[in-house]
Computed example of a mutant assay.
Amino acid sequence: MSEETDLIKLYSGRILALAADIPHAERLSDAQASVKKRSPLCGSTVTVDVSMSDGRVSAFGQDVKACALGQAAASVVGGALVGCTQAQAITARDQLRALLKGSGVVPDAPFEGFEVFLPASAYKNRHASILLSIEAACEAIDSLA
């Protein structure tokens, strides 16, 4: 398979659909923690707001200024994070990192949507943007623990 075909696969219709419909795409006015992260390679930025109750994420908001891959990853995070524990968020982050390094293992539910990034393992320069939202969310959650 050619590299051009692989890149086209990376920007699949599913990636573009996720990027176009990001859940919780507004900042929280009363967040307990906020974190902003930036990818130095491409300049993508994500700011996340998190509130927790009884050890679970009770509210989540995000402002995403990223490429299609960063937006798609933020979409998966936005659709999965509310209701999760700190451990679930950390596991999702670690599993996404492993997937991008080529493990081929799809992250556990409710973050199984990250499987769309399997083709991205070949594009190391895209990894930071894909990781922005989940890393920012984990950092915010960690600050509340």
Rank of each mutant, 00 (worst) to 15 (best):
A80T: 03
D142P: 06
A140W: 01
E112R: 15
I130W: 14
F114D: 15
A89I: 13
C67R: 05
S75L: 06
Q62H: 04
A66M: 02
V106M: 11
F117E: 15
R126S: 10
Q71T: 05
R56F: 07
L132H: 14
L132P: 15
Q88K: 14
Q62K: 10
R93S: 08
A128E: 09
A137T: 01
F111S: 08
A74Y: 02
E135S: 14
A109N: 13
F117I: 12
A128I: 05
G78W: 03
G78C: 05
L100A: 15
A109G: 14
Q86G: 09
G83C: 04
N125A: 11
Q86W: 13
T91G: 09
A73Q: 05
F114W: 08
I134H: 13
D63T: 08
F60A: 12
I134V: 08
D63K: 13
A72T: 09
T91E: 11
V64N: 10
Q88L: 13
V76E: 06
L132W: 06
D54C: 08
R97C: 04
A136V: 02
L81D: 10
D54S: 13
A68L: 00
L96P: 15
F117V: 07
V77Y: 00
P107H: 04
I130F: 14
G78R: 04
D142C: 06
G113T: 09
T91H: 07
E112L: 09
R93C: 05
G79H: 01
A128V: 03
G55P: 11
A87H: 08
G113K: 14
S133Y: 00
F114A: 10
T85D: 03
R126Q: 13
E135W: 04
Q86A: 12
V82E: 10
A68K: 06
K124I: 12
P119V: 01
A89W: 00
L131N: 15
A80G: 07
C67P: 07
V76F: 01
F111I: 08
L131E: 14
A137Y: 00
V57E: 03
A66R: 06
D142A: 04
E112G: 15
H127K: 15
A140E: 01
D94C: 11
L99E: 05
A68Q: 09
G104P: 05
V82Y: 04
A120F: 04
G104W: 02
S121M: 06
F60C: 10
A136P: 04
K65M: 03
R97G: 08
P110M: 00
G83W: 01
S133W: 00
V76H: 03
Q88M: 15
V116A: 14
Y123G: 13
D94T: 10
P110N: 05
L69R: 10
A66H: 03
D54W: 05
G102Q: 00
L99M: 04
P110Y: 01
L100S: 14
D63C: 07
N125P: 09
I141K: 02
V57M: 12
R56C: 07
V77N: 03
A87T: 14
L131F: 12
A92I: 02
K65N: 11
A120T: 00
A98K: 13
F117C: 14
E112V: 08
V76Y: 02
R126D: 11
V105S: 04
V105E: 14
T85V: 07
G70I: 00
R126L: 13
S133C: 12
A140T: 01
A72R: 02
D108A: 05
V76S: 03
R56N: 07
A137R: 01
E115A: 13
V82R: 07
A128C: 07
F114K: 10
A137I: 01
A80Q: 05
